[in-house]
Design a protein around this nucleic acid. Structure first.
Lengths: 340, 340
DNA sequence: TTGAAAGCGCTAACAT
DNA sequence: ATGTTAGCGCTTTCAA
């Protein structure tokens, strides 16, 4: 009947050429230790010669799980996630699993839809961003029957495993540092306003409230995606709105760099008249003039750990620490080094 | 015998619930127009109610092609590819295809290996980066039996379709501009040295040779990945090696920003004593002080076009233009605005 | 417009 | 250590 016209090599052909049955070839490829060395070697040679590559669709269909590991992130373009991905790929390179990426575009509904698509593939593992899944998404993940790791943040009620840090505490450390350095009118610039940004804002507010320095007028947020250009614009707005500002805590480093550039254009001296602090510690903030203080986060490590946790889960190894807080590190630089 | 323990809904269950046969449900989902409106509606409701999601492995196995579109890029982390990906995703969002990414890490051999893995899935389409595939890879792609688009560059002998621009000409435009502005000792800073960087270097050399201004000492290349920090370091090296340099053409914008920062630390005035030009026109170069001249490339558009070409190919539509040169645009800014 | 039968390429379960 | 058999969930072909 139907015949696949293409000349692809199949397991049966390898089996015939090696003088064994299909299942033995299948085993030789997946669990070499259960096949006799002689057969294993013959099969290896034939596979090599004929250039056999297994059909993942067929094995996915025949087994209870596919070799797909799904990664659900809000944006491929964002530097922060790019670093996490680099970490994931670095570990996965040597493995037999396929990574499948999906973008939720910061939408909980889209996340839910994408999750259903992932689950239709019976994935070997899942990595999802953040801790603010919808109830429906959480249910889907509980039922997923594969290791699930939430990344970027830590929080209560992990679905399965978690690796991240506290954005609230990171922001508190940054703002406390600025207060310590003598800044009194500290503004907050935020873009995109995803849940992690919101928690950084909360951290900022908690410190300023504790010092009786909280002022609504110093908080500037926008749903737009953060860019250096946007940092320039927000700071320009801020100067109009609250010219007495003497420091800015930026939701991320792109904004912070923009603030620095705009301040320089306005001849506002940093750090004397204006302190600046970013978030994430992207490589650029170390080399600007002046260099910019930031909260270092361990994004690549987060990716590596997350995928290792998934792999351990797949292997059935007990995961010693299901929730890992990677912390953060305040890197104080010239942009907040006000003297006197 | 074997039973999948999981309670996943299958086509047969939908068929039973809707009072039709499985194949009718399959058709209703893929080609609604061949199914009667009544049946279609009943099926739609049942699918909705039961939350049926087709198993992609089963359909891949049963049909000659899967719904996978493979994208092979050298690096996920690189801004440039991130922009291309954004373009691809923006078009693909509405489509039924799944994107699968793979990283060749700038290795031709790795590219070949990844290509074999892609082909094992009988992909619906492929997007590959550059025009320097190995002979083996080219053969694989010719046999792929699906639309193939090469992106990032244009050149002779397309495998199937192509969308990109000439890096050689882009570099020529940049360097010619610097010569026009009166710079005479123009250096080249290059990182990573992939084939596209090499061609930019060739473009640079061709212009300087034509003006009798070529000088080996002004060319500084490294295999390291480009960062702002690296731009700082390379420029520092350059100053030691050839202090008479009066302009720098950077292989990309990260390096150019680093050169600007390092020049400022050294109190070298830009553009008076030093001209700077980058490549790609990332958003940051428009807002530095001074702003940086760059060669704008249309990366997101490239991604959009590439995926549209793939989709057109899948649909069997004739592709009007199989090779598209998107060109580039020199954006002259303050960093090369030398007066007198 | 709809359906029946066959089979895609592989692996789990049960032999031997 | 190896083989036999059945079947994963879907789509193709052919027939009605």
């Amino acid at each position: 009947m139907k015949k696949r016209g293409d000349g692809r090599i199949t397991l049966d052909e390898i089996a015939a050429a090696a003088g064994v049955s299909a299942i033995t070839v299948s085993r030789a490829l997946r669990k070499p230790e259960v096949v006799s060395p002689a057969a294993r070697e013959r099969i290896r040679i034939v596979v090599e010669e004929l250039g056999y590559v297994p059909d993942p669709a067929a094995s996915a269909l025949a087994s209870p799980r596919s070799d797909v590991i799904g990664v659900l992130i809000p944006s491929v373009t964002n530097n922060v996630f790019a670093d996490v991905l680099r970490g994931i790929y670095s570990v996965l390179e040597a493995e037999r699993f396929r990574l499948q990426l999906a973008n939720s575009r910061y939408s909980t509904l889209e996340e839910e839809r994408l999750l259903r698509i992932f689950l239709s593939q019976r994935p070997a593992g899942l990595i999802v961003s953040g801790i603010d899944q919808s109830e429906a998404s959480r249910k889907l993940l509980f039922r997923a029957d594969c290791p699930v790791v939430q990344i970027m943040e830590t929080g209560p009620d992990p679905i399965d495993m978690m690796v991240g840090f506290s954005h609230y505490e990171g922001a508190r450390a940054a703002v406390s540092h600025m207060v310590d350095r003598g800044y009194r009118r500290i503004a907050f610039l935020g873009a995109r306003m995803d849940p992690r940004t919101q928690r950084r804002l909360k951290g900022y507010e908690s410190v300023l409230r504790a010092h009786g320095m909280h002022d609504e007028r110093l908080i500037l947020c926008t749903p737009r995606a953060s860019t250096v250009q946007l940092g320039c614009e927000l700071f320009a707005d801020l100067c109009d709105r609250a010219p007495e500002v003497d420091a800015v805590f930026c939701n991320n480093d792109d904004l912070a760099v923009g603030v620095l550039f705009e301040a320089q254009r306005r001849r506002i001296s940093v750090p004397q008249s204006l302190g600046i602090c970013g978030f994430n510690d992207l490589e650029i903030v170390a080399v600007t003039n002046p260099s910019i203080t930031s909260v270092r986060t361990f994004r690549e490590d987060m990716g590596r750990r997350a995928i290792r946790m998934v792999l351990a889960g797949i292997a059935g190894k007990p995961v010693e620490e299901p929730v890992v807080d990677l912390g953060f590190e305040l890197i104080a630089r010239e942009s907040t080094a006000r003297t006197g």
